[in-house]
Design a protein around this nucleic acid. Structure first.
Lengths: 217, 217
DNA sequence: TATCAACAACATGTATACAAGTTGTATACG
DNA sequence: CGTATACAACTTGTATACATGTTGTTGATA
């Protein structure tokens, strides 16, 4: 992996795990110094993040982490739902035994989260889960779009996670991973996509409930 | 529009209009000299084009225009079909009278193409048509994806256009524009997306016929 | 005190020199 | 003559100095 790509992924993960909260100002110079490189590769990473709508670069003003627009959140999720369905149709799908092993390891680690309240850690486990599920998507464009939409929306869930029921959220993730593992063992990618779509739909419902009550209260 | 953005759009159009055919080697230095700037903004443009899968950048080797993978073409088109459907659902849609005027102007220019065999010119008219249709998509991600998929696939059509029936292709475009104009006049964006989906589906059929016969013959 | 202009301290954008990788060619050698 | 190696002529990647834009502060003035 090239230098800029490592920097890109690192910054992207920081944004998605809320290490950089929305509105945070990112300095090219400071990041360059931290990573021990010049501004050039850092700029390349930030420009790509801007294309993915995770930061906004303004000349003279600076580079700031975007705020997730709540009114368009539903539209983006609707798109994610549709794309998730398509994965089963368009992607032939092939998963290795090693990947299944890691999925089971992830599921066990998530189960251990029932008794350890750590939103960031849970988000990171799900982040890794997403990476594995992404790697089995054969279609390049579909993989890219799915990845991009995930990174645009995952912050919202993590942001309101402290206000949700912890055990319920952990259980939802454990269940999703369990169902997915069962399906991939039978190499039934169509079912995998349906499972993920359904879980995403349920998550969207919880988000709606929260956002509705948040607007009232 | 910033310097790099103008360069980006210019190079992108050249690739899509086959001024740069697949496999063409692009030199940062040469492009910089042509546009009268340094390599820096040119690199930014090329890096974005790489992200959109229109070029491949290899250190030491060079930057070359990608070849459209025929085996995945159907998958990309299937994705385009789905996304085009979604435009009607997710995008509230608003079009100005000026844009409708330009659509009619475009339609008239396309009609004049019956007697003037010029694939590149026809492609450019349709290119502009796409830009207008794109501008009415409210959802940012959907707009970006639709744009990207269009630019990834339009080259294929233009590439085999000389082997297709010229008058039929012109008529298909004139019809699509006519149907779209009729629908946007009633501000019925859902119908617009259906119309475009159907026309895209018919185009896909013609591509399939050609590719099938090309493999045989 | 309120207001506005000048400016200093940032930010990103650009140009350029140099580092490092790739590839084709030419030349020496078996 | 065939082959291997050294190298020259490209390419993109990186570091850095400077240009340019923005913003908050500071101080002079009404």
């Amino acid at each position: 992996m090239s230098t800029f790509e490592k920097i890109y992924k690192e910054i992207r993960e920081r944004i998605c795990l809320l290490d950089y909260e929305p509105g945070t100002s990112l300095s090219e110079g400071a990041l360059a110094q931290e990573f021990g490189v010049s501004r050039t590769p850092v700029r390349r990473a930030l420009q790509r993040l801007e294309f993915e709508d995770l930061v906004v670069i303004s000349r003279g003003s600076g580079t700031i982490v975007t705020t997730v627009d709540l009114k368009s959140l539903k539209e983006v999720y609707a798109l994610r739902l549709k794309l998730t369905e398509l994965i089963g149709e368009l992607s032939p799908g092939r998963i290795t035994e090693e990947q299944i092993q890691e999925l089971e390891t992830l599921r066990e680690k998530c189960q251990a989260m029932y008794d350890e309240y750590d939103p960031r850690k849970l988000a990171k486990l799900y982040y890794r889960f997403h990476e594995i599920m992404l790697s089995v998507i054969g279609n390049r464009a579909l993989r890219q779009f799915s990845d991009q939409l995930y990174h645009q929306t995952v912050r919202v869930w993590l942001q309101i996670l402290p206000d949700l029921d912890w055990e319920e959220e952990v259980q939802m993730i454990v269940d999703e991973m369990g169902d997915v593992i069962e399906a991939v063992r039978e190499n039934d990618m169509k079912r995998v996509s349906q499972i993920r779509r359904n879980h995403m739909s349920m998550l969207l419902g919880r988000l709606n409930d929260y956002l509705g009550s948040a607007l009232i209260g």
